[in-house]
Structure formats: structure tokens, C-alpha cells
Amino acid sequence: MYGKGILKGLSVTWKRFWSTYLEDISWVMSGKKRYFTEEGVKHRSSKHARGIFTVQYPEEQLITPEEFRYVPFLVYDEGVDGKKEVRCTSCGICAKVCPPQCIWIVRSNDPNTGRPIPEPTEFYIDMDICMNCGFCAEYCPFDAIIMDHDFDIASYSRNVYNMEKLLKPASYYRQIRPENYARNEAERKAKETAKAAKAAGAAAQAGT
């Protein structure tokens, strides 16, 4: 019968149309909020998603997965009396591994001895070149450079980020990537205890 296929197709769109209302009603009946709640957003990105699929950014946001990467930032630890202890040692691995070469680092030198000290004087990332690949964060041995979750960074001018714009506290890192942070901290602790044990062992050996 001519037209059967069209009717079949129309039944699909028809079902889709009504499911938006049925879905909303079922949420209201069960006393849950489908919109502007985390539960609702989660539901809309699950296999059960039907009905309205839209996540109404900026009023609500998709759940950002831990590994999401946008642009990189530099981590500093908050020392006593608010001193910023930059984790970066200016080893330069990120600058070397960066595929489009958008990282510029000036290594600090001790003014007296002229020897390099592990801290960058200047650090630039040209965000108009950065390809968000995440290599810098992946290969940084000190967890000093991390990929950010914040994507609301559009501006009215070009974006070259300097140290001031790049630095963010470790607490922010913990907040956006709790699992990675915990793993890094555990690794760091393990390293420190191993170092201490080694030092103690060496001291004991020297003592005997």
C-alpha cells in the first residue's frame, strides 16, 4: 500500500512529540524535578533519555566528567600566610612536548650563582594556538600544569595567558578533579616517605 512507509515514519515523530509531554508529566507525578536539577540533567544524558533532550545552558550545565580538558592552568599550593608556592619547576617538558609549541617558559637563575633555580620567572601560553590536547598535563612530572574545566573564557580580545592568568590554587584542582588529585597526592606521599626512608637509611649507615 502506497503511503504505509510515510505513516510508519509519522508514527515515530508522533510518538516523539507526545513523549515530551508524557515524560514531563511522569516526572511531575513522581514529585521530582526534571529541569534545573542534577538528577534531571543526569537522566537526560542516560540511556533512558526521552522527551526533551535539551540541557539549558547557562541555567543548567552538563555534568563535566573528571577527564574533561579545556585549556591548561598552573597549580600553586597555598603556603603559610597565603604565599603562592608554584609547583612548576620550569623543567620545560611541557614546552617540549607541546605539539603546536604554544608554551613559553623563562627559567629563573639564582642572581648570585647564576645556577638555575626550579621556578619559572615567566610562563606564557598562547591560547589562540593551544589545541587542548592535554600533553602538557599528561607528561608533567610534578602535576604542576592541569587541564581546566572552565570553558566560559570567551573574551573581547586575543588571549595570551601569562603567569598571573594561569595560576590557580591546588584547592581548585582538587575540586575539579578529585580522583586525579587524590592519586597524585598519594603518589607524592609515597615518594616522600620513600625519600625519607632512604635518607634515614643513609643516615643510619653513616652512623655505623
Binding site: S90, G92, A95, K96, V97, C98, P99, Q101, I103, W104, I105, V106, R107, P116, E122, Y124, D126, V160
Partner: peptide, 13 residues
Amino acid sequence: AKPFKSRWPDGRF
């Protein structure tokens, strides 16, 4: 070839 020498250790933007 990359990495370029101008990026580190004296990488002034």
C-alpha cells in the same frame, strides 16, 4: 624540527 629552542629555557613570548 620541534621542540623549538626559543621556547625554553629562555622562552620570552
